[in-house]
Amino acid sequence: MAMPPLTIGDLSVPVPIIQGGMGVGISLSGLAAAVANAGGIGIIATADIGWDEPDFKKNFREANKRALRRHIRKARSLTKGVLGVNIMVALTNYDDMVEVSVEEGVDLIISGAGLPLGLPKLMEGKVAPKLLPIVSSGRATQIICKKWKQRGRLPDAVVVEGPLAGGHLGFKPEQVDEPAHTLEQLIPEVIAAVQPFADAAGAPIPVIAAGGIYTGADICRFLRMGAAGVQMGTRFVATHECDAAPEFKQAYLDAKESDMALIKSPVGLPGRAIRNPFLDEVDQGGRKPKACLYRCVHGCDFRNAPFCISEALISATQGKVANGLVFAGHNAYRVDKIISVQELVQELVREYDEVCGQ
């Protein structure tokens, strides 16, 4: 049995996989275009996307707008497939990133790290792109749907991210290991939450499973639970086309299960990363910032922050991983080789067929 296509409104892709948006130089035009060419949905992450622009520190907003425009156009030149962007609600330049994404004609916007309640207001008078909020509970889904409906809009699909995801998590630290918050529990909860809104609108609202999905068998399991597709980030880091430095990818290859760590992010959310000398130094209080150069995220008070999130992620994406933060999903320690995006997708399809074809 072949994987079913993923259909979101009038968009359809043959492989029901959305590549996760991994910020600060990990998923840019190179990776997004490769995933789109392989039949999935490629995502450009907007967080600090202008980190390599010469005026990034002096002109944060304009540097990021310029870089996002450049990467969307580059990805478009490399693929005819479906492309989207991931925009964190916590970003101080959120509105800028939405504006540029709409102007450049991306196919969809995925938005989490907070509830994107104001996103439809930024989209007034526009039908495209498709809007996909990231949620971590049925309650959050209902809040978003009710709020958006007041603006005459509903989510075109919903991404449900469980606690095994990499990067920032939408859970309190004590919730991460609770059985009630596993992705297996969340999927039916969110499907039930969107159903009344979908019924009233007379159009489906697909639910996308995310967080800890690693194999084709995992994809089969969540599609059987009613998910329309999956979002995967960690697996795509370990590809030749991933935009991160080779040293960043090597950190995944070298990681052991005991290295997978939950941290307290300056953003105010727990985060999942690979334990390294940088995090050891953070634990000892040796990385407290003396000033804020970027003002990149809401809720970050540098006076009380354990480290500067931008500096840490930029160092990692440059390849200085011992001196930076390496975000990764719980299953990153299972990565044992770097392959092409096409090979990875073929492997996932084959694994899916072995389980779902029975």
Rank of each mutant, 00 (worst) to 15 (best):
A2K: 15
M3V: 12
L11M: 15
V15D: 10
P16N: 05
P16Y: 01
G20T: 01
G20F: 05
V24C: 05
L31W: 09
L31E: 05
A32L: 05
A34N: 00
A38L: 13
G40Y: 10
I41E: 11
I44D: 10
I44G: 09
I44H: 10
D48H: 09
D48F: 14
G50Q: 06
E53H: 14
K57D: 13
K65M: 15
K65T: 00
L68M: 09
R70Q: 04
I72A: 11
R76Y: 01
S77P: 02
S77W: 00
S77M: 09
S77Q: 07
T79C: 10
M88Y: 03
A90D: 12
T92F: 00
Y94E: 02
M97S: 02
M97N: 05
M97R: 00
V100Y: 03
E103L: 10
G105D: 08
G105S: 06
S111M: 04
G112H: 07
A113V: 14
A113L: 01
P116W: 13
P120S: 06
K121E: 14
L122N: 07
E124K: 15
V127F: 04
A128M: 10
A128W: 06
P129W: 04
L132K: 02
S137I: 05
Q142A: 08
I143W: 03
I143N: 05
K147Y: 07
R153D: 01
A157R: 01
E161D: 12
P163M: 08
H168R: 04
H168L: 15
L169T: 10
H181D: 02
H181V: 07
L183D: 14
D199S: 12
A201F: 10
G202H: 12
A203Q: 14
A209V: 10
A210C: 09
A210Y: 06
C220R: 04
R221L: 04
A228D: 11
G233L: 02
H240P: 00
E241P: 05
A244C: 13
P246R: 09
P246C: 11
E247F: 07
E247V: 08
F248N: 01
K249N: 10
A251T: 13
L253N: 09
E257L: 05
I263W: 06
P266A: 05
G271Q: 02
R275L: 15
P277I: 02
L279Y: 11
L279D: 14
D283N: 11
G286F: 08
P289M: 06
A291K: 15
C296V: 02
C300Y: 04
A305V: 09
C308Q: 08
E311Y: 06
A316K: 10
A316C: 13
F327E: 06
A328Y: 04
V335C: 14
D336Y: 00
D336A: 02
I339T: 14
S340G: 14
V345M: 13
Q346A: 15
L348M: 15
Y352G: 07
Y352A: 08
C356L: 11
